[in-house]
Design a protein around this nucleic acid. Structure first.
Lengths: 160, 160
DNA sequence: TGATTTTACTGGCATATGCCACTATATTTG
DNA sequence: CAAATATAGTGGCATATGCCAGTAAAATCA
């Protein structure tokens, strides 16, 4: 008799664990659908963001993705290597490099976009479209600088 | 004039991107508070789970964490190296290895737990305790096998 | 019971992320 | 303007995760 009755886990108490676990699960689900495109879910998200923002400075992109600048750099490597994106120096400020989609990148994105719609559609059906909209809003709140601010300034442990 | 007006991003449309981004942000916030303990948030979550479940087979732990078995193995390496946990062979089934906390691990966990309470307290204050409870429930739903089932069997793209 | 299949783990390889140190530019100051 | 400081990226190192190809041991089948 395997404990099908789901023993309690850290995710029942810890907000961070719960979010991470759900993120892994959802990532797997999207990833599985997107696989045929040859793009990882994160890469697709990155391409989408670059497509939306045009030639974007790395710093700006990193902030938008709520990602460390160096992490962004690392994550872009495979995409650069595969010619999906390219870096162009900013003319005004020579410290700045902007990322933009190449033609290959645009094409690949268009392909992947079809698969993404599939995954997104499945989520909306399984979770409910309204609920999904609300979920994204909640996630975006947590991702906001205002929230980080509130978290950081909140007094912590209030046990007892 | 920097576009403070937050241009739209993939997270406004994609559930997965939104969840990942929030997960990165929240991870950073918890991580910053937990840092003094010398444990990463994920490691703390793992220790907590092992503490809750006792000597647990790797497979079982991986499933509970919604994590790939090999990923779990990799993630456990630093904790094994630092003597926080140890592997003990299962007596009945020689294929199985169980993980359990060492004394050091128990002690470290107790330390980290104080910091975790701080982070958790901040979240509850910034986000609202009720809302946090609901959030965890939602995350646990997404992490459930039932949800994966529903997602997988749902027809995807319905772009007409 | 011996061959086949399934199950639990390990190790190698690749991407995802973060921190820190260092370099090249800008910007601010004295 | 020259020196000090701040900003944008890069590269190295470490953890987080996943996939795939073994390996060993248990369960099933013929």
């Amino acid at each position: 008799m395997n404990d099908k009755t789901e023993a309690p886990g850290s995710w029942d108490y810890c907000n961070n664990s719960a979010l991470k676990r759900a993120s892994r699960q959802l990532g797997q689900l999207y990833e599985e659908i997107m696989a045929p495109s040859g793009l990882r879910a994160t890469q697709y998200a990155l391409l989408t963001q670059i497509k939306l923002g045009g030639a974007t400075p790395l710093k700006t992109l990193a902030e938008a993705m709520v990602m460390d600048l160096s992490a962004l750099g690392h994550t872009l490597k495979p995409l650069l290597r595969d010619g999906m994106v390219e870096l162009v120096p900013d003319e005004k400020d020579r410290r700045v490099k902007r990322v933009r989609l190449t033609e290959s990148g645009e094409a690949k994105w268009a392909d992947a976009q079809l698969l993404w719609r599939d995954a997104q559609g499945r989520f909306d059906r399984a979770f409910g479209k309204e609920a999904a909209d609300a979920l994204r809003q909640t996630m975006n709140l947590i991702s906001s600088g205002d929230f980080a601010e509130a978290f950081t300034h909140a007094k912590g442990d209030v046990t007892k």
